[in-house]
Design a protein around this nucleic acid. Structure first.
Lengths: 196, 196
DNA sequence: CGAAAATTTGACATGACTCAACTGGAGTGG
DNA sequence: CCACTCCAGTTGAGTCATGTCAAATTTTCG
């Protein structure tokens, strides 16, 4: 019994309404794929071939700099998209890695068939346009937060945006997402505890 | 003699090829508008009604935080798009201001007619999808640079990405774009001068 | 030329990092 | 059920990148 893509269909229906025929075409072109905890969906330097919707599980997208430090760009859980979009659209080597933090199931769109999907189901092109617009708005807000807020405040915002993710992933990943060291996050938390 | 939108048509033709009829529809729905240096295209708190392509001129998009400090999210020159995309797509109050740094001419798409444009010219929906995808990729790269690079290196990258813009805008705006103070940028520059 | 705006410089303050040591669970295997 | 290890998290001392503030200097432009 294969995992079904119902969560993806629900998600799509928030943005566009597909006819049964369109849904059938969609299903032809989406593949469900599972990865184990620790597995890489994408490695820096490889070309990103898929745009992946997370049906179940949790991933990190991160960049490793010249000094070997990891920087988390995105943490993804259920109903999030993950791909190195720059690598995907240009089919150039990826800047980022994507790795599973839990056993994770994806619904994947492949670069080789994505233009065909857009041709056959223009509503899906609309859907991806909207998803990308939201992603861009979120990224700009993140840039602003990094510029205008202290690490402590960014942590508080993070807890609102990702409620309960702290129970799923280790703290040093949260620190990396916030752009700070694990030691400093630890100090922030102990300071917040005192303030209670 | 109104300004014409040829730069926009050229830009669009890099992504999609419009028929003469499609181009005619486009022209019906685009309005050209000019602003003087210093004028606001959008103010924080207002709803962003337009997505604007810069035909000629230069703008800054910025956020003013609670302490009154300006943070520049984007500097736009010819052939760039500018809008508070979050405000535009949801028609909610804008987080950002957009202000002209020179007398500036725009080709503007209005929220009220954008869906109609997408219906009548699906190629333009494709065009905006692609533009947004590129914008998202650029925003993610900026996030990474802010995390992994020192201010000095970000400045060097900036000079590559925006060649010649330093002749058009004051240095304190560059500093704000880089997320540092004008004083610190000044120190970086004098240090770079010594290294020669 | 003169005034306002932009830039530079210096002294000092601070948020955040580094490194190293330590604590405390969660396996694992005997 | 204990001993061992491993990994995440904590804590502290010292350091560095960058910020703040104030004064001096240069540039721009009416």
């Amino acid at each position: 019994m294969p995992l079904d893509i119902q969560p993806l269909l629900n998600y799509i229906s928030n943005h566009v309404t597909l006819s049964p025929q369109e849904e059938a075409i969609l299903k032809e072109h989406v593949s469900v794929r599972s990865y184990l905890k620790g597995q890489y969906v994408l490695q820096q330097g490889d070309v990103c071939k898929t745009s992946s919707f997370i049906l179940k599980g949790c991933v990190k997208m991160f960049y490793v700099d010249e000094t070997g430090h990891e920087h988390i760009i995105m943490l993804g859980v259920e109903d999030w998209w993950t791909s190195d979009i720059g690598s995907f659209i240009n089919q150039t080597p990826a800047d980022f890695n994507i790795q599973c933090l839990e056993d994770t199931h994806f619904a994947q769109f492949h670069f080789d068939s994505i233009d065909l999907i857009y041709e056959r189901v223009p509503k899906l092109e609309r859907f991806f346009r909207k998803v990308t617009e939201r992603g861009l708005a979120a990224a700009l807000n993140r840039i602003i937060r990094n510029f205008s807020m202290t690490a402590k405040d960014r942590y508080l915002v993070f807890k609102e945006n990702y409620p309960s993710i702290e129970q799923r992933i280790p703290q040093y990943l949260v620190a990396s997402y916030l752009g700070i060291t694990k030691e400093f996050l630890s100090k922030i938390k102990s300071q917040l505890a005192v303030e209670e």
